[in-house]
Design a protein around this nucleic acid. Structure first.
Length: 361
DNA sequence: AGACACCATTAAATGACCGA
DNA sequence: TCGGTCATTTAATGGTGTCT
């Protein structure tokens, strides 16, 4: 009978083989392959050996990544960036409204960020919206009559969020700057700190590269391959990711019902880990300010649902940046947002039951 | 009250892209 | 190849709430 090697303790005598760790166990099993073993015993040994080999493989790859980590540490880290901070209002040249320019700018920017969260991720036409006069008697039922009424409706949405004294300053770069920043921050949050709440363990492995996302998720976000007569495209409404149940056809009773959309919404409104807090038994109790509170958001808007749908598609898409038009998929996210929000609002004005049910949901 | 933790915001840095 | 532009990412700051 071969001597068992105790892999847990250090070898004490020079006679003992100097192999330790997982290899020692493998060697032990290997040495039990003797001619006297029965078929059954041999089969058991083979299984045991396979298991030990798997363990060893894991141990070795863990060592590999450990080595990689260590060599990263050896490479001197870049010197920490030290930077001087300025206060924009303090450094701004004195202007006509210097009395309250700081608060006016702050409040205008805040409205821009609120717009991204609650109304829409993109302006229909960033150039046109600021050259339009505010129509004081605007009737939302005419919203979808033409492009200019659509833009007017969006202008109304902005004005509603703006403090009165900032309305006349809406053409400043403040809103545009805040809107871009908030859009970028939202996308960044979803792909980084919030991702673990927005994908299951299997899917999480495929988020590192654009091509990995494409290969694994393209069907889910509505990929339709090219044919002889048509180029490839992504279907706006036949995308399983928008549904809680999807049978291949558009079904308004299940559209926008994927819990993923709720989780995305929670990540935005209630901090990066919002979903875990949202579904816990104990009441949600954040220590710091969060969007829902900052912007006093008490209802779910059609804009927010459309946003979550667009963000879900982008999140699982091959696109690496959140642009109006996806840099890999060519999906027009601005147009997508309009399609979704239009469907929702038309359903709402037509008192369609599915939209009511969705908003309640 | 004061130490502490955490979030949102924003300036600064980075990197990718584009057109001249 | 160079400079400009834009989205992303990092780092600093301020504010708010918690805990003792």
């Amino acid at each position: 009978m071969p001597q068992r090697i105790d892999s847990e303790s250090e070898p004490t005598t020079p006679q003992r083989p100097r192999i330790q760790g997982p290899l020692a166990n493998i060697l032990n099993v290997f040495q039990e392959f003797t001619p006297s073993k029965t078929q059954r015993q041999m089969r058991g040994l083979r299984e045991e050996l396979q298991g030990l080999l798997n363990d060893a493989e894991d141990a070795f790859s863990a060592k590999d990544s450990e080595i990689a980590d260590l060599s990263n540490q050896v490479v001197p880290a870049r010197p920490r960036r030290r930077r001087k901070r300025f206060h924009r209002a303090d450094d701004a040249p004195a202007s006509l409204d210097s009395q309250n320019s700081e608060t006016l700018e702050d409040r205008t920017r805040k409205a821009g960020r609120h717009f991204i969260i609650d109304e829409g991720l993109f302006f229909i036409d960033e150039g046109a919206i600021w050259s339009l006069d505010v129509d004081d008697d605007f009737d939302y039922s005419t919203e979808f009559d033409s492009k200019s009424t659509r833009i007017q409706a969006q202008l109304q949405d902005v004005i509603r969020l703006l403090p009165d004294d900032a309305v006349s300053r809406r053409t400043e770069e403040w809103i545009g700057d805040a809107v871009r920043g908030q859009r970028s921050a939202t996308a960044y949050r979803l792909r980084r700190p919030s991702l673990k709440h927005l994908a299951d363990a299997t899917d999480l492995k495929h988020f590192t590269t654009s091509s990995d996302r494409f290969e694994n998720f393209k069907q889910r976000i509505g990929y339709v391959p090219a044919t002889d007569t048509a180029v490839l495209y992504y279907s706006a409404f036949k995308a399983p990711i928008l549904y809680d149940e999807f049978a291949g056809e558009i079904d308004v009773d299940h559209l926008f019902r994927n819990p993923l959309l709720l989780n995305i919404h929670a990540c935005i409104l209630r901090r990066a880990d919002g979903p875990t807090d949202l579904f816990k038994d104990n009441p949600y109790r954040p220590q710091a300010p969060y969007m829902e509170k900052i912007h006093n958001i008490t209802r779910t808007s059609t804009g927010a649902i459309a946003n979550a749908a667009v963000l879900a598609i982008w999140l699982y898409s091959a696109d690496t940046k959140f642009l109006e038009r996806g840099n890999e998929t060519n999906i027009n996210y601005r147009k997508r947002y309009r399609q979704y929000v239009e469907e929702l609002r038309k359903g709402l004005t037509a008192k369609k039951a599915w939209v009511d049910a969705l908003l309640n949901y």
